[in-house]
Design a protein around this nucleic acid. Structure first.
Lengths: 356, 356
DNA sequence: ATACTGCCGGAAACCGGTTTCCTATTCTAC
DNA sequence: GTAGAATAGGAAACCGGTTTCCGGCAGTAT
């Protein structure tokens, strides 16, 4: 599988620098073509010749140049991971990291590598991604849809490498994988309503990725079932960070008629809500119920542990990668896949104080 | 493994299936050599010819093949990041992610990409890394030293790409960057002793990276100053995860003569200690003081917020990358750099109950 | 003895750029 | 008017592999 460093043997070549396939061929008294066959486990090499070449390879510690291989074979064994976030945002978001983990795990099983491309600003993402796609570095791409794939859907469709979207492809026909955002928000809101809450706030983001549109739709549907409508004054926005969640919560809790429960559309903002409650001397869940989304590791470590909607980040990544490998292997494109979400009830939700 | 992509240059547009430099040359009525000059902003091309070529490039949306470029130039603009962890461990550890962020930021300023290589098991890391280094994919490497660089120090030294270690190079002469682990642990332990603690437990790891040896040494030094010695029974081990910290804490707190303070050698394990205390009905810091190490984002979000030793993960990554770029540019190798740590006193430390 | 086949191995083209080196032309300087 | 740069552009080698194609040589059937 791999070659070890030359521990002994005839000092392979003077000059010291990396041996090439031609050197190996010379030392083994064969042609480079035959060495190539051995390197790639191809037939039509006698076992004697093969053994001789393998011995020389082992002795010299030769490892074929990937750069040369990438050029001559049409594959780089690199998958592009296109994330329209700055790297700061990416590394700070456990849910995105979970997605990456899933992709990475799946890629590893196929001996594929991952090339991560982030963007300074969402605006320049499209051109940077287009450039990457056209530079022939990657064999395929996974796009994490956060704001909108539309701007570069055309570019994606044009270039030769197959693409997959994690999120909602919407009217473009790019293969997509996403979680059941609608169902998750529906379940979470029903849970709050069942506890007796009537004024439920929400913290979304602005601009809003389509996934959050779906969550809002689910929330509205649950409220509708109970004969309620979402009070637009209770719809705050953040930027997914805990700090923004904290600020948004202060905004909501400072209202004349504050909500008795807040549904933050991700766990990080929910942790900010918990912090805001603590600052204001509110007890959770007695004075305020909190629900998050994602179920990142942090959720269960908060005190009290956070009630949230579990979203399979790892599974999303894995599914997207598997889908992409399918495309690379020429398998027919399946319809968009929706992965289940699950409401995890922990300690931040309870009946409202007034009664329930 | 994965890479990060640094975008460059202006954005192209339109096009069909990937044109090559020869196509461009033909369309512009020049030779490929001249097109190459334009692509690389080289002189000896008349402005008229240059304009004509640039127009053709823009019209076709031509982006030169990186694969070909990598082969002919001797640079790939890829830095290897060698982490002897499984990717699961890496993605779960905010401190490692901070290091990555720092490296990524520095690499981006130089339009360099990052290739992350993890290992299934620490044992196979050496061979996998050696292979990567010799396959000529990367221009240089940053090794995150967790257990021991010795196994592949020889391989690192031999291959042509320059290397830098984040951690302690020890007796090998590889350039290294690390935090002041000794000083941080010294300050943290002094803080506990000043509060009046006499029985202080520690949670280290097994096997122990050299950085943790340093922390333990710092702790022992502080205890020595106070005329105390570390009770070996109070030295527990974990694997850096919150769960392991929780288990270790239960072990320590279940002792006949339990410690009044626990110094966990990273924040994640410290969060587990907090959890163990909560489970056992102990109040923090009244019944138990807790100190962590790293100062990850989570630290300030715990209730009460965690007292910890801040370690500049981002700065370490940045410094390592800057050092590596220095080597790539042929600058003389500087001596090992030590970055300062800082004790951050928050809410988990206080005088012990007995008295202080 | 001839034809056909399968197995080995090598020569050379190729992947798509970069770079060296060479020629032709134009621009100075004397 | 001419020697000596400096400028423009191109032919071909090169980076280090892979792949196609072809010839030589058994072995076997005709």
């Amino acid at each position: 599988m791999f070659y070890t460093w030359a521990s002994e043997g005839p000092a392979p070549m003077a000059g010291g620098s990396m041996p090439t396939i031609d050197e190996i061929a010379r030392l083994a008294h064969v042609s480079p073509a035959t060495v190539s066959k051995v390197l790639n486990n191809r037939p039509y090499v006698s076992s004697a010749t093969r053994a001789r070449i393998e011995r020389v390879i082992a002795e010299t510690g030769f490892v074929p140049s990937q750069r040369a291989r990438w050029l001559s074979t049409r594959r780089s064994f690199i998958l592009g991971l296109l994330v329209p976030y700055t790297s700061d945002q990416l590394f700070a978001d456990p849910h995105l990291l979970e997605i990456m983990r899933g992709i990475e795990a799946e890629a590893n099983t196929r001996e594929y590598n991952l090339l991560l491309s982030t963007a300074r600003a969402p605006i320049d993402a499209a051109s940077a991604f287009t450039r990457l796609l056209r530079s022939d570095v990657i064999d395929g791409a996974i796009v994490v849809e956060t704001l909108d794939v539309q701007p570069f859907a055309a570019a994606l469709a044009q270039q030769p490498a197959p693409c997959v979207v994690i999120g909602y492809a919407r009217d473009s026909d790019i293969p997509a994988v996403h979680a059941d955002d609608y169902g998750g928000a529906l379940a979470a809101t029903r849970h709050l309503l069942a506890l007796g809450h009537r004024r439920v706030g929400a913290i979304s983001s602005s601009p809003r990725p389509y996934a959050l549109d779906e969550r809002l739709r689910g929330m509205r549907a649950a409220l509708g079932e109970a004969g309620l409508a979402l009070d637009e004054a209770l719809l705050a926005t953040g930027d997914f960070s805990p700090e923004s969640g904290e600020a948004a919560a202060h905004g909501l809790l400072g209202l004349p008629d504050p909500p008795s429960a807040i549904f933050a559309f991700n766990d990080r903002m929910a942790s900010g809500v918990a912090r805001a409650a603590w600052t204001r001397g509110l007890s959770v869940p007695d004075d305020l119920s909190i629900v998050g989304f994602d179920d990142i590791a942090l959720a269960s470590m908060l005190t009290p542990p956070l009630t949230t909607v579990r979203q399979p980040g790892y599974g999303l990544g894995q599914a997207a990668a598997a889908l992409l490998f399918g495309l690379l292997d020429g398998v027919a494109v399946p319809p968009p896949a929706t992965l289940a979400t699950e409401l995890i009830v922990r300690g931040t939700t309870g009946p409202p104080k007034g009664g329930g």
